[in-house]
């Protein structure tokens, strides 16, 4: 049984004017199903680039990358979209909820693109909102919700497609410490239920929730501690 995420000699270079920037400089590692991983490093260390590659938001320049059975270095744009919809749940620092759209519709958005019929979309979105303790606020718009509630709606949205992997990019970056703790507790419990959680953070106390910490520097993994 191969690992859920497997990457070998992963390179990503950007052309910035005349200079080439090596955002990823030969990364090789595996992440098993059910792991709880924190990706750390200073800004410009390559941690965000690594996350973008895992989520098929970007393509590697060279190397091998397989996530949840999909060879991400070989997919077409259409296959990438399908992969993102099926395998990955994204959580962003700024929540990225659609304004003027109710909580339940925000949660149901991935199902729209997965071709799920409207009635079932609503049922599944409501179930996830309930899991996040926001069932009564299903018809609230993001502007009517607190930051913590908005991030929970975003997590519900990330989970609605039953993905293998939850990718969270600084999920507590825009929240106060009390709310941050609530959100991190939520991630802990989701991981206990079996989902693979990978979070990018530069805060040590957030990273400490994870069971494994990857530290990036200059496009390489310099530390991999469990």
């Amino acid at each position: 049984m191969s690992a859920l995420i497997e990457c070998r000699n992963l390179f990503k270079t950007y052309q910035m004017g005349d200079t080439k920037i090596r955002a990823l400089d030969g990364v090789s590692l595996e992440i098993e199903s059910g792991e709880y991983v924190a990706v750390m490093g200073a800004s410009g260390s390559g941690k965000s680039t690594f996350m973008n590659l895992l989520g098929a938001l970007d393509r590697p320049t060279a190397g091998f990358l397989r996530v949840d059975g999909a060879l991400l270095n070989q997919l077409t744009a259409e296959q990438e979209a399908e992969f993102r919809g099926r395998s990955i749940g994204f959580v962003f620092q700024q929540f990225n909820l659609l304004p003027r759209t109710s909580a339940v519709e925000n949660v149901a958005l991935p199902l729209v693109y997965a071709g799920v019929p409207a009635a079932e979309r609503r049922k599944r979105a409501m179930a996830r909102l309930e899991q996040m303790g926001l069932a009564e606020r299903y018809d609230h718009h993001p502007s009517q919700l607190s930051g913590g509630q908005q991030q929970r709606v975003a997590i519900a949205r990330a989970l609605v497609n039953d993905p293998q992997i939850l990718l969270a990019d600084e999920p507590t970056g825009a929240l106060d410490s009390k709310t941050s703790a609530d959100i991190m507790a939520l991630f802990d419990s989701l991981n206990r239920d079996g989902i693979t959680v990978i979070l990018v953070t530069h805060e040590q106390d957030v990273a400490d929730h994870a069971k494994r910490q990857l530290v990036f520097k200059d496009g390489r993994v310099v530390e991999d501690r469990s």
Binding site: R84, G85, N161
Partner: peptide, 12 residues
């Protein structure tokens, strides 16, 4: 960007 991230295809 968000729609693309949650599985929207280019043609969507």
């Amino acid at each position: 960007g968000l729609r693309l991230a949650v599985g929207a295809r280019q043609r969507d």
